[in-house]
């Protein structure tokens, strides 16, 4: 047992557990291998991981980095003592939060917003699809406007509060 542990790198139950997991996945793969669309399923399964890890994540991380760099310009340093002394609260999260919310909403309702299912929808229901892109844009506008309003409020309430707790809060949801 100790020898297995040393060679394998974890306890025996760890190996058993993982073999069980792969047995299930392997059985499913074998079962689906006969499907004519099995290749597409595999492609979407692996593609989802690749798109999330190597496209979506780097994209939003880079946008965030660019945003931080832009907003840090003209400010001594984000979150540092100098920033806390400056009169203007950090706008970072007031851009970040509505941007993340709008991006998430776009991602989740993307088929509708881009009208990708319009044909099927009309055929099934006999209804004209509604222009959801305009709604998403309006919702995005509302999110940014609400965030900006909260920012202005914070700015107005800022003077006289000293290096108070208001510096760089999470902003509105």
């Amino acid at each position: 047992m100790v020898e297995l542990r040393r060679r394998y790198g974890a306890a025996p139950w760890h190996l058993l557990l993982l073999l069980g997991c792969f047995a299930v996945a392997g059985w499913i793969a074998l079962r689906l291998a006969g499907e004519p669309t099995a290749g597409r399923m595999l492609l979407w399964f692996l593609g989802a991981v690749v798109v999330h890890d190597l496209v979506l994540f780097p994209a939003y991380a880079l946008v965030d980095r660019a945003l931080r760099a832009t907003l840090a310009r003209g400010r001594p340093s984000t979150g540092g003592p100098a920033a806390r002394r400056s009169r203007r609260p950090s706008a970072l999260n007031h851009v970040r939060v509505p941007a993340l919310a709008a991006g998430l909403v776009f991602l989740v309702y993307l088929p509708g917003v881009l009208g990708l299912g319009d044909g099927t929808y009309s055929a099934a229901t006999g209804l004209q699809p509604r222009p959801l892109l305009a709604r998403w844009l309006a919702l995005t506008g509302v999110l940014f406007a609400a965030s900006a309003a909260v920012y202005v409020l914070r700015w107005l309430r800022q003077p006289g509060r000293g290096a108070g707790p208001a510096a760089g809060g999470p902003g509105p949801r």
Partner: peptide, 21 residues
């Protein structure tokens, strides 16, 4: 998400894929 929004872009049977996935 694609299924509830009628966008069958994936080109495989939704039930089969969603079940085994």
């Amino acid at each position: 998400l694609l299924n509830v929004q009628y966008a069958y872009l994936f080109g495989f049977d939704f039930y089969t894929a969603h079940w085994y996935g």
